[in-house]
Design a protein around this nucleic acid. Structure first.
Lengths: 134, 134
DNA sequence: GTACGTGCAAATATTTTGCAGCAGT
DNA sequence: ACTGCTGCAAAATATTTGCACGTAC
């Protein structure tokens, strides 16, 4: 699906937010997206950022992530993939590991419900933070 | 570790919160814990709930979970285990699946940092919600 | 007796929403 | 032109914190 144009309009704001998310790999927060977008469109409001993030998420264009923080991060890559989270600096990066469908199969054997998907995050120290610590 | 009594005091409030968490398996939110505890100790404050949840978490007595919602849930079982989240009713339940250490090994091969742990959640429909839906 | 802990209330932080005018199709 | 979208500001939600008093050790 490209975009549900029968219900949604591709406004300049929405396109810009999507562009920002697709051209970064650091999984920014709403506030960080706001800063980025404001450099091009200074009068955009944070409410518009949040409204568009929701629409884009519901349309399957982007993903929302939240890893123990009080805020969400967003990922312009909507396809299933895993993430690595540094416990020191909080950076989130993509993991080049294929999605393991067998996890769903395993889980289905012990769950009295319908298994649909799973989410996996790896925690540790990123290369940069690992160096500084003894 | 039982509890770091050299730094922390086991107050009635803290003990009660811990008891509530240990005697339930539905991974309650802070607010729900507050309601429970208030039935026994009506003058306790929500601030105290949050402060104690943090102390208990830092002491390794409990776990904090957050799955895409804007609020956290808490788990009185501090040992590593996986969770199943129903996408309809939002219920969170424990999964009887052993922790797969090989996931860390696999991840370590493709990550340029130090892998320490991982978190896995299964999503789907719980038994109750699966029935109602065609 | 000494800190840590508590209740209360105010403050933060993040996200959502009402509204009147704007703009994509 | 129709209806969704925007900016603005206020509200809602979840969590944290300052303070004076209380209590576990």
């Amino acid at each position: 699906m490209v975009f549900d144009i029968t219900r949604h309009r591709m406004t300049k704001q929405r396109q810009l937010i999507l562009d920002v998310l697709r051209n970064t790999d650091n999984h920014p927060t709403a506030d960080r997206i706001y800063e980025q977008v404001r450099q091009v469109m200074p009068r955009i409001s944070l409410g518009t950022i949040y409204r568009n993030l929701r629409v884009l998420k519901e349309g399957g264009e982007i993903q929302e992530l939240n890893y123990g923080s009080s805020y969400s991060r967003f990922d312009g890559n909507p396809s299933g993939h895993y993430h690595f989270v540094c416990r020191v600096c909080g950076a989130v990066s993509d993991i080049e590991l294929p999605v393991m469908k067998e996890i769903n199969t395993l889980a289905a054997q012990v769950i009295s419900g319908k298994v649909e998907s799973h989410r996996l995050e790896i925690y540790g120290l990123c290369a940069g933070c690992g160096k500084g610590i003894v």
